[in-house]
Amino acid sequence: MGTVAVEVVAWVTKFVGGDGSGRKVFDEPIVPGATVRSVLEGLSTRYPELHAALWEKRELGEHIEVLVNDAVLGIAHTLESPLRPGDRLALLGQFTGG
């Protein structure tokens, strides 16, 4: 059994007990068959604010961008893609300004 690092970046740390700056990295243990979805659900179950921001029913909502190994989810991975030990997820806030 290994772990997947979930990096929560800047603004999104607000949803996991942070102050909206810096980073929080969670080393999430994975079991065989673990997917992007199962890892995210495992983390968000422990943080209700993150859960509310991340999900819309059982799909990802519009508020948080998910990266898998530095690529936006949807390119090389989907929610159902299997993860291997050493893979990295990142959670970024959606940016609506500019």
Partner: peptide
């Protein structure tokens, strides 16, 4: 209170640099 708009409420468009770099 909206998870996305709240960052605008608190910091305007400042979060853009870090977010957009990551993307």
């Amino acid at each position: 209170t909206d998870p996305t708009a709240r960052s605008l409420y608190e910091y305007g468009t400042l979060p853009g640099v870090v977010n957009l770099h990551k993307l």
